[in-house]
C-alpha cells in the first residue's frame, strides 16, 4: 500500500508562495489561517534557503498521540486527518507537532480558540466525499478524485513533491544524482571551502 508524503526540494524552492495561494484557492482557507507556509533560512544572506512546510502526515503522528478526544485518524494510504466535530480546540496537538502545522481559526472577536485546522493532503475529512459538509469543514477532496494536493501540483519549479513516498523519493533521487549529489547554491564554497 502506498504511503502519501510531501517532500520539498530546497535546491529548487524559490519561495514564490504558489503552494500557499494554491491551498487558499483550492480550499478557500480564510485570511489568517495558513495550512502551508514557506519558511526561509538566512534570508537575504549567502546560504539563503527556503522550504515549504505543512502537516507532514507523520506515520506515528504526535498530534494523534496526545489528542484528549482522539479525533485523529490515518487513511489507509497514510494521510493524517481529523474530525472537527469532535475536536475541542484545546491546542494540545499544537504542542506536540514538530512543524507547527495545527492552526486555530479565531471564532469571535475575543480570540477564543476555534477548532483545529490543518493540511488534509487535499483528502477532505470524515464526511461524505464532495459533500457541502466536507467542503466547508475541510475543503475539497482531490485524493478521492485521483488527484494530488494542489500545492505540489502547481509548484513553480516542481520543488514541492507529493504522492506515494516511493515515487516521490524516486523522482528526488534522480534529481540529486543529476546534480552530482551536492547542493548547488552560492555560499556553499564560501562556507565550506572549494573542495566541499
Amino acid at each position: 500500500m502506498a504511503r502519501m508524503k510531501f517532500l520539498c526540494d530546497a535546491e529548487r524552492c524559490i519561495e514564490c508562495q504558489a503552494c500557499v495561494t494554491a491551498c487558499k484557492n483550492e480550499h478557500e482557507v480564510p485570511w489568517g489561517v495558513n495550512r502551508r507556509r514557506v519558511i526561509v533560512m538566512n534570508d537575504g544572506r549567502p546560504g539563503e534557503k527556503s522550504v515549504s512546510v505543512a502537516c507532514m502526515h507523520c506515520t506515528d503522528a504526535p498530534c494523534a498521540a496526545v489528542c484528549p478526544v482522539d479525533c485523529f485518524y490515518t487513511t489507509a494510504d497514510g494521510i493524517v486527518l481529523h474530525d472537527k466535530d469532535l475536536c475541542i480546540g484545546c491546542g494540545y496537538c499544537f504542542y506536540a507537532c514538530p512543524f507547527g502545522a495545527p492552526q486555530y481559526p479565531r471564532q469571535t472577536a475575543f480570540g477564543v480558540r476555534g477548532k483545529m485546522d490543518k493540511c488534509t493532503f487535499c483528502a477532505g475529512g470524515p464526511e461524505v466525499a464532495h459533500s457541502e459538509a466536507e467542503l466547508t469543514k475541510y475543503g475539497t477532496n482531490r485524493i478521492a478524485e485521483g488527484k494530488l494536493p494542489l500545492c505540489a501540483e502547481m509548484c513553480a519549479t516542481k520543488a514541492l513533491l507529493a504522492g506515494d513516498g516511493d515515487i516521490v523519493a524516486d523522482i528526488y533521487r534522480k534529481r540529486v544524482m543529476r546534480r552530482g549529489g551536492r547542493p548547488q547554491t552560492w555560499g556553499w564554497q564560501a562556507a565550506y571551502g572549494q573542495d566541499a
Binding site: A64, C71, L86, A123, G124, A129, N141, A144
Partner: peptide, 13 residues
C-alpha cells in the same frame, strides 16, 4: 488513542 470520530469512507483500505 483510538479514533472516536465519524467514519470516513474514503480512508478505508
Amino acid at each position: 488513542g483510538v479514533y472516536k470520530g465519524k467514519h470516513d469512507e474514503t480512508a478505508t483500505e
